[in-house]
Simulated scan of single mutants.
Amino acid sequence: MIRSMDVLARNFNVLQEKQKTISVNAANATTPGYKAQRLIQSTTAAEDLHNYMGGRELEGRRQLGGFTFGNQLDEMIRSFDPGALQSTGTVTAVGLQGEGFFTLQGENGQQLFTRNGDFTVDEQNQLVTQNGELVLATNGGAITVDERLTIDTKGRILETGQQLLITRFEDVNQLDSVGETTFTGQGGIQDTAQVSVYQGFLETSNLDMADAMVDLMQVTREFEANQKVLSAANDTLKKATNELGRV
């Protein structure tokens, strides 16, 4: 009975994390450049079971084989599949198609990477994110915006001669999330050969809401199934307690 309760507790923890991940995805369904999260789940290692019901006297050890006591979460990964490009008509909105990330400068000077091109201009006439991080040029500095802003498909700012710093990673799965759409990572390569830049467009979230709803319904069913098992275990404990009390 104690082992059963441990299995149930583990299952509820797994389901809570899955539900949390689905909720975060759904909340960012309209966030530009958002990459959907997914939890990788596996079964726990099988344990050998035995009893002492073997032999003529029913006292010999008998192996029953292996049994798996529930599931566990291994890691959280993101899908870096591209989202669709959506026209905004805003000159500071920039969408990417192909491999690569916009390069930003965080508050502590650390470089950040994002596919969210929902930019704006700050009081210093610099191109920044909605959170205030600087959008970097290929020289590592800020991008200055004049009265007009024209960006070609290679990220060149025609009015100033600057160019957006586009960073590509050989393995995007090695990136670490530091926000809903920003990442950190090592080994990035400055590269515009495999990416096209589209001014006035934003890359939409790559979340498939239909898949998210199916996942949510599946988690709900699993919650219900585990709650029924918990209720049955609770009834068994009550019955056992009441009968022991009569002895």
Score class of each variant (00 low, 15 high):
Ala210His: 00
Thr21Ala: 09
Gly60Glu: 12
Asn71Lys: 12
Gly66Phe: 12
Gln63Pro: 15
Asn13Ser: 12
Asp208Asn: 15
Val214Tyr: 00
Ser23Leu: 12
Ala232Ile: 06
Ala36Thr: 10
Val195Arg: 11
Asn108Phe: 06
Ile40Tyr: 08
Gln97Ile: 04
Arg56Tyr: 05
Leu96Cys: 07
Arg3Asp: 07
Gly70Val: 10
Val94Trp: 09
Tyr52Met: 08
Thr182Phe: 08
Glu99Gln: 14
Met76Gln: 14
Ile166Glu: 04
Ser4Thr: 09
Asn71Arg: 14
Asn25Ser: 00
Asn139Asp: 15
Gly132His: 06
His50Tyr: 15
Val135Cys: 05
Thr150Ala: 11
Arg56Asp: 08
Leu165Phe: 11
Phe223Pro: 00
Thr153Gln: 14
Thr150Pro: 04
Asp215Asn: 15
Gln174Lys: 12
Gln16Trp: 08
Val145Trp: 12
Leu58Lys: 08
Asn51His: 07
Gly132Trp: 04
Gly66Asn: 13
Thr43Asp: 13
Arg38Gly: 13
Thr144Phe: 14
Thr21Lys: 01
Asn242Gln: 15
Ala142Ser: 14
Ile151Asp: 05
Phe223Cys: 00
Gly60Asp: 07
Asp235Glu: 05
Glu59Asp: 02
Phe101Val: 03
Thr30Lys: 13
Ser205Asn: 06
Gln190Phe: 13
Glu57Pro: 02
Val135Leu: 11
Asn234Arg: 08
Glu170Tyr: 01
Asp152Tyr: 09
